[in-house]
C-alpha cells in the first residue's frame, strides 16, 4: 500500500479545486460568455477526475501490444471521449443562444438582461 502514498488523494483534491473554480465562475459572474467558459473549466475538471480514476500505476495506454502486462482501464476513456464531443456541441448551442440574447437585448450581462425583461413587462 505504501507504493500508492504519493500522490494518494492529493491529485483528487487539486481536481476538486479546479471544479470549484469552474463552479465559482458559473455562479458568481454575470457575463454569459464567461459563464460558458466557466462551464468548460468545470467540464474539463470532471473529465480529468474520471480519467485519473482509470489510471493504474505502471500501466500503459490501452492499445494492445506484445510484452505489456498492465493497461489502464479503457472504459472511462470511452465515456469521456464521447463526453468531450457532446461538450463542444452544447457549448456551440449555448454560444448561439448568447448571440441571440445580444441581438435581442443589446447586452450579455445576465443582470442587465433581467432588468430589461422586467421593464418590458
Amino acid at each position: 500500500m505504501i507504493e500508492y502514498a504519493f500522490p494518494g488523494l492529493l491529485n483528487y483534491w487539486i481536481v476538486f479545486l479546479l471544479m470549484m473554480i469552474g463552479l465559482y465562475i458559473v455562479i458568481a459572474h454575470e457575463n454569459l460568455i464567461k459563464k460558458i467558459v466557466g462551464l468548460n473549466v468545470f467540464q474539463v475538471s470532471v473529465f480529468v477526475f474520471y480519467i485519473s480514476m482509470a489510471k493504474i500505476k505502471g500501466g500503459t495506454a490501452p492499445i494492445l501490444a506484445d510484452g505489456i502486462e498492465v493497461y489502464s482501464n479503457p472504459l472511462p476513456h470511452v465515456l469521456i471521449l464521447t463526453a468531450i464531443v457532446v461538450g463542444v456541441a452544447t457549448t456551440a448551442l449555448g454560444l448561439a443562444l448568447v448571440v441571440r440574447i445580444q441581438e435581442s437585448f443589446g447586452t450579455i450581462e445576465d443582470d442587465e438582461v433581467r432588468e430589461k425583461e422586467e421593464q418590458d413587462k
Binding site: 480519467i51 482509470a54 500501466g59 492499445i63 489502464s72 468531450i84
Partner: peptide, 22 residues
Amino acid sequence: LDAVDVAFTEAAVGAGASTVLM
C-alpha cells in the same frame, strides 16, 4: 494518465473547435 485517445480529442475539439467558436 494513459488516455491518448481522449487527449487527442480534447486537443482537437476542446482546445481547437470551441476556442474558434468562442
